[in-house]
Simulated assay, not measured.
Amino acid sequence: MMQVVLSIQAGQVLPSTLLKKLGVYSRQSSLYKAFSELGRVERTLFLLEYMSNTDMRQQIRAETTKIESYNAFTDWIAFGGPVLCSGDPVEQEKRIKYRDLVANAVMLHNVVDMTNVLGELLEEGIRVTPEIVSRLSPYLTEHIKRFGLYLLDMAIRPEPLRPRPLFTTT
Rank of each mutant, 00 (worst) to 15 (best):
Q92I: 12
H109M: 01
E123N: 10
E68V: 09
I126H: 07
L140Q: 12
L22G: 00
V112Y: 08
C85W: 13
I60N: 03
S26V: 00
Q28H: 06
P82H: 14
L38H: 01
R95A: 13
I8D: 03
R57M: 15
K97V: 08
A10I: 02
T64R: 14
P163Y: 14
V24M: 01
I77Q: 02
E63A: 15
S134H: 03
S69M: 09
T54S: 01
F46T: 03
S36D: 09
G125E: 03
G148R: 04
G80E: 09
Y139G: 02
R127M: 05
K94F: 11
E159Y: 06
T141C: 09
L45K: 10
E68H: 11
Y32N: 01
E68T: 09
G148K: 04
M154F: 14
V24W: 01
R99P: 00
V5I: 15
I144T: 03
I77H: 02
S26W: 01
T74I: 15
P163E: 06
P130K: 07
G23F: 00
F73I: 08
F147G: 03
E42W: 06
E159G: 02
E159W: 05
M51G: 00
C85M: 13
M114I: 14
T44V: 01
T64W: 10
L152H: 13
G80N: 09
D100I: 02
P160K: 10
G148M: 04
R127Y: 08
E42R: 08
R135D: 10
M107T: 02
V24G: 00
E93K: 11
R164K: 15
I144Q: 05
R27A: 04
F147H: 12
L31Q: 01
M114Q: 15
M154C: 09
Q92N: 06
G80V: 11
P163L: 12
S26R: 05
Q9H: 11
Y70N: 04
V13H: 00
T65W: 05
T64N: 10
Q12R: 10
K33E: 01
I132K: 09
R43F: 11
A10M: 10
R157S: 10
V83H: 14
G81S: 09
R95W: 13
F147R: 09
T115D: 10
L19V: 02
F46M: 08
R99S: 04
T17Q: 06
Y25G: 00
D55V: 12
R127C: 04
R162E: 14
A78M: 14
P130E: 02
L121N: 10
